[in-house]
Each structure stands twice: as structure tokens, then as C-alpha cells.
Design a binder for these strands. Structure first.
Lengths: 205, 205
DNA sequence: GTCTATACGTCGATAGAC
DNA sequence: GTCTATCGACGTATAGAC
């Protein structure tokens, strides 16, 4: 499900935050990421995370505002470009990019569950932080993939008779949906289905 | 996201349940479905549902065991075959079937959010009811679609050089993922992307 | 500014009265 | 079979110590 090709926006600078506070926030965030990576997505309550990190749960809300915003921060930081072990490979097709991204994210326990939870939360009302996160991610990701599709259509590597925006949405949806199916039973032909989509998009086909 | 083509298993008969209890359970369930259809997926706590239905929250756990099982029952019942307004149309392609199913389900407020919540819950540990629901649904749906793909490959309506199981997984994933994107911003080219996939699967293409 | 202590209201679940 | 009562845990908010 997560499959970002890395989602970096500007750093989350907040008004009135000084170096000390930012450093401490980062310290807590790093520790929280370790906790997630070690124990998966369970024990994701504010109090449980605070216990592991070694602070009070109120300290977490002080730095992050709410549980929701903390979870978003953990996800963003976990998938930040500088944490990605491999380089993006410029000649990859959109589907190949999503495959590689999904492979990387799947290695971090709990990350995909965290992503799913955030997206599901975003669909409910009254959760602005999750909503903003999910909307931004999809919008940016689709835009980036559509650009790549246009480039590769010009290069003759993707069929020219298809709409780049539709392709982008389709690739993102397929990647997310297949990740979910694969997590649920492991027998879902995730890789085969993505390879199939990749093939269908090529000119000779 | 929901897109069942209707998911009927055997009725949820439980050991030691007598006619009276079953009738009452059904009565509560029908009322709960109305509440969901009227007010959407919000107010989905046990207590809120109980308040609307006119019983105590303890009565709900008595009949359904847990909130999770109640939510699964509400979803199953809401998408039951006898509630589907239109007939399935035998000559539809798998993608067309998912489009039609999504259209029907989207008309019921809160149903798609409910589905998303159930799937996200299923990915976490310690939620057996949601896990069973999601796993069964995906397995059954993929199996049914794969059969249809095989039929239509034989009829020459779908390309013969692609794996039916991979197609089934891909179609389900695309349908679910696009529904999510569409719910989040409404500008996602849901229909265009599905139409594209439908076209890519056809022989002449 | 940073952080603890504490309290509030709500949650899902359960025990036991009737 | 259905209720009341109660439990522990949750997210959030606030007061005030440092």
C-alpha cells in the first residue's frame, strides 16, 4: 500500500519552534519510528508510544498536537527519501517504480498497516490531519506518475493512445489494492498482477 | 471500494441460537442498517448504534459478540443480493461488473467508509472477525472473477495471453484503490481509469 | 518553552441482577 | 434474554512546575 517513490514536502517547521524544541521533537520522532519498526503497528496508542519513548503521553501531544499528527509524522519520516536504501532508477516505468517502493516499505514492520489506518481514517469525517495527508499524497503521487507517463509515451515506451492521468490513478490504485490483498493472505498474485499491468501499458503489448 | 457483485455466504447461524433470538437479532440488524444508511458511517460506536436502535449497548454485544462482528454483519447485510436493486447483467466484463457494483454501493452513505474501516482493521493483529471477513471476501471475489475471465477468454472477449488470476487480483485492487482515491478528492479519474483497464484487457485493444 | 500531573468524557467489554 | 453497573484504557485538555 505505501508506495511513494518518496513523498517529501517542505520540512514541518512550525511557528515559534526553536532549535532546542525541534531537536527534541526529532529525537522523540526517531525513537517512535524505532518502536514502530521493532514492534509493528500494534500498541499505537498515545500512551503506549509515550511509555516506550520514555515520556508522558502529554509530551507527545505537546510536540505533535494529536495522535493523528504523530502517526502522520512517523509515516512521513519512515518513508523519507534519506531513509530509502536504494536510488530511484531513472528509467523505470511507473509500475516498476511502485513495485520497488512497495518492496522497500514492506520491509518495515507495521508501516503498511500504519498507511492503511491513515487512509481509512482520512475517509471518515473530522480527521483533518489524516485527510490532508492522504489527499496530498494521492494528488502528488498521481501528478508525478502522470508526468513520467507523458515522458515515456514520448519515448515510445508506453502506449500513446491512453490518458496519462488515468494511467497514474490506475497504477496507484493497483499498487495500494494489491498490497492490501497480499498482506491479508500472501497468496494474492501481487507481483504477477503488477507485472501484467506493466505489460499492458507497453506499446507492443 | 466495496464492489462485491454481491457476497453471499451461508447465513450466520450460530450454535444455540433459537428462532426468537434470531428474529430479534435480525430486527436489531435491520434497524442498524437503516441508521447507517441515514447517517453515514459516523457515530459507529456500540453505544451510539444502541441509542439509535433503542437498546443498551450490552444488548448489542449479546447478539453480535463485539462491535467488529456487528459491523461485519451490517456490511454483509447491506450488500446482500436481495438488496441489490438491479440484476447482474451476464455479459458484463469483470471490470464492468466492478463498476456497476461500486455504483450501487456508493449510493449507500457510509458503506464505503465502513468497508475501508473493516479492511484496515483486518490488517491489524487481534481482530479475527474483520480478518476473516476481508480474507474471505477477497478470496471469493478473485475466484469468481477469475472464472469469468476464463469464460470470456474462451469467447474471445478478453486477451488470451494473460493470467486469469492476475487479472482478477488486478481488477479488484484497481476498483478498491480507485474508490478510495475518488472518495478523498472527487477529482480522481476513477471511471476513466477503470474504463482504461477494461480496454487494455480486450483483445483488439 | 518543556513537560508532568491530573481530570474529563467516551470507548468496548464484562459480570451479575432480574 | 436483557438490563444496570462497573472496569480499564483511550484521546484530549488544562493548570502549573521548572
Amino acid at each position: 500500500m505505501p508506495a511513494d517513490t518518496s513523498d517529501h514536502a517542505e520540512p514541518p517547521r512550525q511557528r515559534g519552534a526553536y532549535a532546542k524544541g525541534i531537536a527534541r521533537r526529532q529525537e522523540i520522532l526517531d525513537r517512535a519510528i524505532e518502536v514502530f519498526a521493532e514492534r509493528g503497528a500494534d500498541r499505537t496508542s498515545l500512551r503506549a508510544i509515550a511509555r516506550e519513548v520514555g515520556v508522558t503521553h502529554a509530551a507527545l501531544t505537546h510536540y505533535f498536537g494529536s495522535l493523528e499528527e504523530l502517526l502522520v509524522a512517523v509515516y512521513q519520516e519512515s518513508t523519507a527519501p534519506e531513509r530509502q536504501p536504494s536510488s530511484p532508477a531513472d528509467d523505470a516505468t511507473p509500475v516498476e517504480m511502485m513495485i520497488e517502493s512497495a518492496r522497500i516499505n514492506r520491509a518495515i514492520p507495521g508501516l503498511v498497516q500504519l498507511y492503511s489506518t491513515l487512509v481509512a481514517t482520512a475517509l471518515e469525517e473530522g480527521h483533518p490531519a489524516a485527510r490532508t495527508f492522504a489527499t496530498d499524497r494521492f494528488t502528488r503521487l498521481r501528478g508525478r506518475l502522470a508526468d513520467i507517463v507523458r515522458e515515456q509515451q514520448a519515448d515510445g515506451r508506453i502506449r500513446k493512445d491512453i490518458d496519462p492521468d488515468a494511467v497514474a490513478a490506475l497504477v496507484v490504485a493497483a499498487s495500494d489494492g494489491l498490497q492490501t490483498q497480499w498482506l491479508l493472505d500472501g497468496t494474492a498474485p501481487q507481483h504477477e498482477a503488477l507485472a501484467l499491468l506493466d505489460r499492458l501499458l507497453r506499446p507492443e503489448s
